[in-house]
Design a protein around this nucleic acid. Structure first.
Lengths: 141, 141
DNA sequence: TTGCGTGCAAAGGTTTTGCATGGCA
DNA sequence: TGCCATGCAAAACCTTTGCACGCAA
């Protein structure tokens, strides 16, 4: 990761607090901008993007690319690093667009297997499973 | 999926053949355009995008969103549907950017597990594992 | 005081869309 | 003949970048 000094600016504090308050939710850069604007405070969008990206570098946030032409979204995963999100994968339903958190220890076994057998260390924070959720599978189609 | 009639146009045939010839490779829309231009033939980029997207719908191609600001890429998976690509997942190295095909039956077990226990039917064709490949893990870092 | 962070505006690149024309069925 | 596919160009979209100024350390 990077080893720049971390400046404690007003903007960074606002963003950090907002992301922390929304732990477990997926927030886009645009949503952050809207929130900030609604607060009366104003932060340039360039700053929003730069700070979010930096926090991803620092391991405070994780970033998901869900789809093409869908803005990237960010999620707070704690200032103590990735530790407590280790067992959390994400599933994205291709039908309804829902994004599901999946906590499952079996999946850690999988990650283990892939690392040992295939020499690939999966990053659960960035990986998204695409497929069809139960609602959509059972219902309409 | 969609049930439109499939018109057999010259453009579609060219695209289809090119994608088929490149089975196992990941092709971007831009690459397709370049190829077409190099052939002397000319296909509007709008058509390229529209046809590729349609073939994804039909199950002939699959589409991967590797990263933000990286063009989407397409891969031929056969006209007989998803069948023969069932056991193939993809891994994207976050460090060197490599895209790796991973054939593994154990992963099918996983998909099974997720479907049974979590009610989510994973689509292997769209799912990409992010992480660090063996080269990058062992070497530079 | 130094250098990083910020803000604004503009650029960048990929993908989509509108509309008239051409071609398949 | 009817309808879909095509092509061109322009638009839309998210994200990044350049540069001058402000602020944290």
């Amino acid at each position: 990761m990077t080893n720049r000094p971390i400046y404690k600016t007003k903007q960074r504090e606002i963003l950090l607090q907002y992301m922390k308050e929304n732990t477990g939710r997926h927030i886009t850069a645009a949503q952050v901008c809207d929130y900030v604007r609604a607060q009366g405070t104003s932060i340039g969008q360039a700053t929003v993007y730069r700070q979010l990206e930096r926090m991803v570098d620092e391991g405070i946030l994780s970033k998901y690319m869900i789809d093409a032409n869908t803005p990237a979204c960010f999620e707070y995963v704690g200032e103590n690093g990735h530790a407590d999100a280790e067992a959390c994968f994400h599933c994205k339903c291709e039908k309804c667009g829902k994004l599901i958190h999946m906590h499952c220890e079996e999946l850690e076994t999988i990650a283990e297997h892939v690392r040992k057998e295939h020499g690939f260390a999966i990053d659960p924070l960035r990986t998204v499973f695409y497929g069809i959720c139960s609602d959509c599978a059972g219902g309409t189609q």
